[in-house]
Design a protein around this nucleic acid. Structure first.
Lengths: 333, 333
DNA sequence: CTGTTAGCGCCTTCAT
DNA sequence: ATGAAGGCGCTAACAG
């Protein structure tokens, strides 16, 4: 912590602290002469305004908090990068708070958490209504949700049921013998239930079109390539008649199915049709048809909404923006 | 922001602000009676201490910053979780700052960055000497490095050259026809050069034992399973005589080689020997011998050192702790 | 053990 | 356009 304060700058520049304050806050009514003297003094002294003092007075920190369930996946990596790009333009910083554990959640339930010491909060893929008592985030700061629908907060999301429906529609064009590989989220307060929604949408579409679909065609895997590959091998080994179609509720599973098919000498796009979800960049290499969430656009919009809320005096109307999934057709379906 | 202040609590509890301050800071010399009155008042009012005011006067926030190059990998996931577990025990919080871009780095170069508004900084896998002008982090707060050696800062690291040497030693027991699959880090200020060090160690060991090794045996892949698999297939297809040994500078590549060998009907542990690096949990499933960095222990130690530095009045001696890699032998070598 | 009080560094009137 | 001065909420030192 440098011990240079606004006072030192004022002394050095031969002006009052008020003038220095005006300069560092970019106010207009300062003479050119004084402005330059102050800037010079700041430079020479290496002065840095004290954020705590500033926060104490104004309550603003030019920073926001991003809360995510985890940080190990491409999804959140892209999300955070997109958010950051908007923040940079607006001269904001961000801290990232992964909801790592039950204990960490307890901390986040307390108003005193670091999380709430920023100007606003961006939450991604978190079931706010389950997570917090009263279903509310314990803060008066603006909150915007990404990848999660809400009745209470501003939100930018995608309809995961719709993803399932689209997958069903695409696959039905190719085969009526359909399988699903999905992930069973443990039903905790942490989980958002997106996998379930995708599956629900899939089944709903089939039902609406009078297609028989037995739950014995639903297979489960861990979020791990190795698992998915093994599971896919075992499923494909038992298939009697081709072609068959697979709804992979995440691209990773689609990858496993593609590799399994190749290992077994099956022809992807002829014997085996596959639709994945997420639009990972590498799906192109393996020719996997995939349904993409426009993460970048969603994140950027959410960030812009948040910044707008932070800076508006009156309370703007709540926005609930639904994005449509993007279908990227490739060889696999 | 609740507008309840320490004064309101003092009024309600019929004590002075000093007493309230003592209670919320857990100091001992407060009568049981007053303590309870204060706690009750805090509860009823929903009082939350203002962090900015606190930070302004004491300079302490009970939080630390973690700086990592990225957040998408298992490595940093495990690291952050381990750090967090120690922080929880000590009633600290953390914010995470991924060094996402060149622009973000510029922000981190400024003393005013949010990054430095915590009580201490933990940096992982970042070449501090290249990153910052003067090779110093622009702060007076304690800094501890993980996974990076330093002459200047406290650090907890592993010798990546040693990893390469160990791999060479293991593989030489099985075959003298050795290959390497590694990743070429672009040489930017962001990169730590661990892959290069692993390779250097490998080559040094061979040279020291008078084993011929041509650089044409070194192959490169992206950090992506798909790539690694393809590369491994292409290498193995050209091999004339088995057995051969592979040093995979990260487990992911080892996985690709295992899969490629299986695809080609080769016997891992007989035709093809493989040593990976990182000790990923899934290496067990595929029988991959791997050299592990004890990330958990390293992270916990680094965190403890940091907390100790934060809380000590005198400046403790600089600690530089080198961990030894852990070899986990499995079927593949 | 408890109350009082002087700042911490800054922003923001209010005069000038 | 500028300076002076009063807090913001809290801690810590001191006096009792």
């Amino acid at each position: 912590m440098s011990k240079i304060t606004i006072k030192d700058v004022a002394n050095k520049a031969n002006v009052s602290v008020g003038t220095v304050s005006r300069v560092i806050n970019g106010e207009k009514n300062v003479s050119k002469e004084n402005w330059q003297k102050v800037v010079k003094a700041i430079e020479e002294l290496g002065y840095v305004p004290n954020t705590y003092a500033r926060g104490l007075v104004s309550g603003k920190t030019k920073s926001i908090s991003i809360v995510v369930p985890m940080i190990r996946t491409d999804f959140y990596d892209r999300l955070i990068n997109s958010v950051d790009s908007v923040l940079i333009e607006n001269n904001y910083e961000c801290s990232i708070f992964p909801l790592l554990s039950e204990y960490r959640l307890k901390k986040f339930l307390e108003k005193s958490s670091l999380l709430y010491h920023s100007d606003g909060i961006l939450m991604s893929s978190l079931p706010v209504h389950k997570l917090f008592k009263d279903g509310s985030v314990p803060t008066d700061k603006p909150v915007v949700l990404i990848d999660m629908e809400s009745e209470q907060y501003d939100c930018v999301y995608i309809d995961n049921k719709q993803i399932g429906k689209i997958a069903a529609k695409i696959l039905l064009e190719r085969s009526s013998d359909l399988y699903v590989m999905t992930f069973v989220e443990p039903d905790t307060i942490f989980t958002s239930g997106v996998f379930k929604k995708r599956l629900d949408g899939f089944e709903e579409f089939l039902a609406a079109n009078d297609i028989q679909f037995s739950s014995s065609k639903i297979f489960h895997s861990e979020l791990n390539f190795h698992y998915a590959l093994n599971e896919a091998m075992s499923i494909l080994n038992k298939v009697q008649k081709f072609p068959v179609g697979f709804f992979a509720t995440t691209d990773l599973f689609g990858y496993g199915i593609v590799m399994a098919a190749k290992n077994l000498g099956l022809d992807v796009g002829k014997d085996v049709f596959i639709v994945g979800v997420d639009g990972q960049p590498w799906t192109e290499d393996i020719g996997l048809t995939t349904i993409k969430q426009p993460i970048e656009e969603m994140s950027e919009l959410a960030t812009n909404i948040l910044i707008q809320k932070i800076n508006s005096v009156s309370i703007p109307a709540r926005k609930s923006v639904r994005f449509d999934p993007l279908v990227i057709r490739r060889m696999s379906a």
